[in-house]
Design a protein around this nucleic acid. Structure first.
Lengths: 186, 186
DNA sequence: CGAGGCATGTAATACGTTACATGATTTC
DNA sequence: GAAATCATGTAACGTATTACATGCCTCG
């Protein structure tokens, strides 16, 4: 019973809670996010879907369109929903990458509002810890190569921005607890 | 002849160009960078070193310290240096993650100054492209979930910061072409 | 004397990428 | 008519994670 990270499978489930779609569609969504979630190839996408099928997390409907290549539309089952909920409810590990966080962000609609806020707080704590650790490393008076100094500076710049962003969103969320249009201002 | 990314092996080689060290030491360096380069476990570190040994990229010296556990100090060979140079000279792929970039940054000392600037420019171009792609996605008037809007906003915030950071460093590098203390001003 | 750090390793497993394979349709 | 897009899939390969296994030293 290994505590798997296995994000792709769960991510697919998350997308399917919002809408039934084909493997190809899923890839389009992923692509539209650019780098953010990586560019999973079909070689990982289709096997993931097949695995989900076997586990009973999804069902297929073949959409045979005369003339055009037929599509396989995957829909999530109740079991799939439950699996997904269990996954998303558990806190992200302390070393979660930005990518893992973004994936959860994209599926934020599947959180309760409170769940979303919890996720954001957890991320905040982790980024803050990362920041502190970088600062600590930077403060050491070891000889350090130019590259290492650059990398530390880079990491701190990004982490600082992320903290500010998180605070910003958390503020908006607590100020306008009913609005869904948190990101509308620009 | 697959164009491998195989970063860990090359990254180890890069570290060894700066100093001979043991597997444990390498892990310490990695740890000191926090998230930036991930936390490769020994399960990947040691096999990587063994593989490098077989390929003749490194040599070992056993440092038997009476009383204490003996350490295996790895040193890079000429062949290893060459392998590393070839790797680092080739441009990063268009989908290189921040992690891949940071790894190259840390090894920046192994670039010529011109090489470093080239790397930074390449990264700049890629981040700019990513940024543009996110903006394009954001501009589409599709219905979009809260999560997707949040993720796009997040990605843009980070990408924008990264662009600014890159410009900043590139400026300093071109203004003070001889100084190594580019990151000294905090 | 127990916890945690130092120091090395192996084996099972699962995961993703790359390349390969197919075939129809739309666009230039 | 060639190239790109839609649409699905398989197989080989390499790689990382996890868990396991060992042993000594130091600090509290």
């Amino acid at each position: 019973m290994p505590a798997r990270s296995v994000s792709l499978r769960h991510f697919i489930l998350g997308l399917l809670t919002q809408q039934s779609m084909s493997g190809y569609d899923i890839r389009q969504v992923l692509r539209s996010m650019g780098w953010l979630v990586g560019n999973p190839s079909f070689g990982s996408l289709y096997p993931a879907l097949h695995a989900l099928l076997e586990d009973g997390g999804v069902t297929v409907d073949v959409d045979a369109r005369p003339g055009k290549p037929s599509r396989k539309i995957y829909s999530i089952t109740d079991a799939g929903r439950q699996t997904f909920q269990e996954w998303i409810d558990q806190p992200v590990g302390p070393y979660a990458s930005a990518r893992a966080f973004v994936m959860r962000l994209i599926l934020a609609d599947n959180f309760s509002r409170a769940g979303l806020i919890t996720q954001l707080h957890q991320r905040r704590a982790q980024v803050a810890a990362h920041c502190a650790s970088l600062n600590q490393t930077a403060a050491q008076e070891d000889e350090r190569s130019l590259g290492q100094r650059l990398a530390l500076d880079y990491g701190l710049a990004l982490a600082t921005t992320e903290l500010a962003w998180l605070d910003n969103i958390l503020n908006r969320l607590s100020q306008q607890p009913q609005s869904m249009e948190v990101v509308q201002g620009n």
